[in-house]
Simulated scan of single mutants.
Amino acid sequence: MASTSILPFPYPLSPGTDICHIPRIRRILEKDQKHVERFGQRMFSRAELPGFQERYDKVLQQRQTMSAHAPIQGTDDRSNIISDVQYSPYDRELLKLSNWMAGRFAAKEAAKKAMFPHRLAWHKAEVLTLPGRRKPVLVIHTSSPKADSHENEDRDHQQLRRQAAQHSISHDGDYATANVLAVNCFSVFSAIETLEDREEV
């Protein structure tokens, strides 16, 4: 049977999608402050950290307020207890941060899939709010395919390219989803090499 030649997709565009369970992020945010801040430093770049820290500070402030209004142990006076934690200011701030962070997590994971087979770290996919723009911009940091193929080259000194990508983040119930469309020269080269290898067999 004659082999069928398949032309690769002609444009260097690659999609990626991901879904994140919001309660999973919330459980992380409910842990001690050092644990949460370490996770934030792992997930966010230096440019993204101020946005995370500003939101997390609001959660900490409401947590301290709620603790200050907790009943004194051994007393029956419950007039100063928040009757329903679900609707407390602390819980509202925690939910806001959980939703925000889950959306960013999904966007970063979607960007990693869009850039396959290039390995993309969380810090190399930034969701930034630029001055004068309401919608955040997804910026992907990658080296060129030629530079990436040089195994002996010091990767720390490679010239990185900052490329904007199209993305969309949505929330529904307990889930946050993200879709990314990115420029990915790596996928085009990989497809061409795969087809050439098949033709040689």
Rank of each mutant, 00 (worst) to 15 (best):
H141R: 10
D174N: 13
H141S: 15
M115E: 09
L128N: 10
A178K: 00
Y175R: 03
T129M: 10
S187A: 15
G173H: 08
W122E: 01
K124N: 15
P145N: 10
A107S: 08
R161Q: 15
T177N: 01
A107P: 06
A165Y: 10
V127C: 11
H167C: 04
N184H: 00
D154R: 05
G103S: 04
P117N: 04
L181E: 01
V139G: 01
P117W: 09
R155A: 14
G132C: 06
D174K: 08
H157P: 00
K113R: 08
K135T: 12
D148M: 13
S187H: 11
A125D: 09
Q163H: 08
T177Q: 05
S187Y: 04
A165P: 11
V137A: 13
F186M: 06
K112E: 02
D156G: 09
V137W: 04
R161W: 11
R161T: 09
P131L: 11
A102M: 08
E126V: 04
Q166E: 14
A106K: 01
D156T: 15
S187Q: 09
P145A: 10
Q163T: 15
W122P: 03
L128V: 13
A106M: 05
H171Q: 15
A182Q: 00
D172L: 12
A164R: 14
F186D: 02
A165T: 08
F186P: 10
R119D: 11
V139A: 01
K146H: 14
E109M: 01
F116T: 11
S143P: 05
E151G: 07
L130P: 07
T142H: 08
Y175S: 04
L120C: 00
A107T: 02
A165E: 11
V137Q: 10
L138N: 08
A164D: 15
R161H: 15
R133E: 14
W122K: 00
S143F: 06
N184V: 01
Q158F: 04
R104V: 01
L128S: 10
D148E: 15
Q159K: 14
L128Y: 00
K135D: 06
A107N: 02
F116I: 00
G132W: 10
H141Q: 14
N152H: 04
S187G: 06
K135V: 13
K108Q: 03
H118V: 02
K135Y: 09
V127L: 15
V137I: 08
I140V: 15
T129I: 07
A178N: 01
L130E: 13
S168A: 13
T142L: 04
S144Y: 11
V127E: 05
V180W: 06
